[in-house]
Amino acid sequence: MAKETSTAPTTTVNFITWIKDNLPVVIVTIFSIILFIMIGFEGGPPQLLNVIVTGCMWALLATGLALVFGVMNIPHFAHGESFMVGAYIAYFTFTPLNKIFLATGSKFLIYLGPFLAIIAAGLAGSVLGIIIEKLVFAPLRHRTKEGWIMNAFLLTVGMSFVLTNGTTLAMGPNFRGIPRYFDVPSVEIMGAFIAVDRIVAAIISLVTIGLLWFFLRWTKLGRAIRAVSQDETGAQLVGINLDFIQTFTFSLATGMAAISGASLLFMFQAYPTVGLTPLYFAWYVVMLVGLGNVAGAIVGGFLVALLQSGTQLFIGLSWQSVVPTAIMVLVLMLAPSGIFGSEVKGVQEQ
């Protein structure tokens, strides 16, 4: 009899303690499922597809942000400007290329154009990342590590200021956009029509995230990056070149943001402050899942997209910055280290 009573309660007790330990995750999961069902009822498949596509975008942006924080401890405020640079590069590559390719009339070349533009944007973003890292962060890192996180944050704030206004100076405040990348009719999925561009953008972000995961997991360089994110001193002890790893990581993240800016050119036209909205949402994602949590950022991207969609659907388009922010304030208040509870190199202490 004693045996019977002891087994049953322990499992329930275990379950309860598990829920207690993971309370934020449980609450967010339940909330998201409810929201997902509500959106499904109200908006139908088009809205759900929209959530998935938007989620891919935010995930790609947020992984870059999380990577930079995890490895270099930089809360990157100028991530949106990398997005903006990507959009500009894609515009200036795509429009002339498209003219030339249209003149040739070859279907293959016409469909190749957008991909070339996106790749060019990614490369340009990486180069920009290297320049910024060498010019701004390396000198500060060599001067002092004291109060690094806050100093780095304010530096990126200054950078964002310089890049935005520098672009205004060089390009003017004009909007530069394209109606679409692929001149083909929309595809019907589950009774909903969705533009090919959006599908391609979602696929590109998924592929990029997949490549990143593969790179971090299976290559030597990726292992080195993960080692640095876990313990800088230890990584140096086993002969990892810290400077190189940090420059590389920064360039990787900037390149990823540029890719997402380029692949979304049909939605976000290129203009100097285009990066602000994507930046806000990428920050919501990383604050939700915990700063520096790369794997969590992918999940978080979809959660934030869900929240954004729900706000648009049930409250109104103009409230889409207010409601998610209010919820993020709640998250910050109740679980400052995010719902997955990441602790990155003693961030709380700084």
Partner: peptide
Amino acid sequence: LRLRGIFAAVMAWFVGIALMGLVNN
């Protein structure tokens, strides 16, 4: 109150965004 450094800055930032959105709406 419970936050420091970057978390406090981000909290104030989010509150600022929310207030601006509120005034806009």
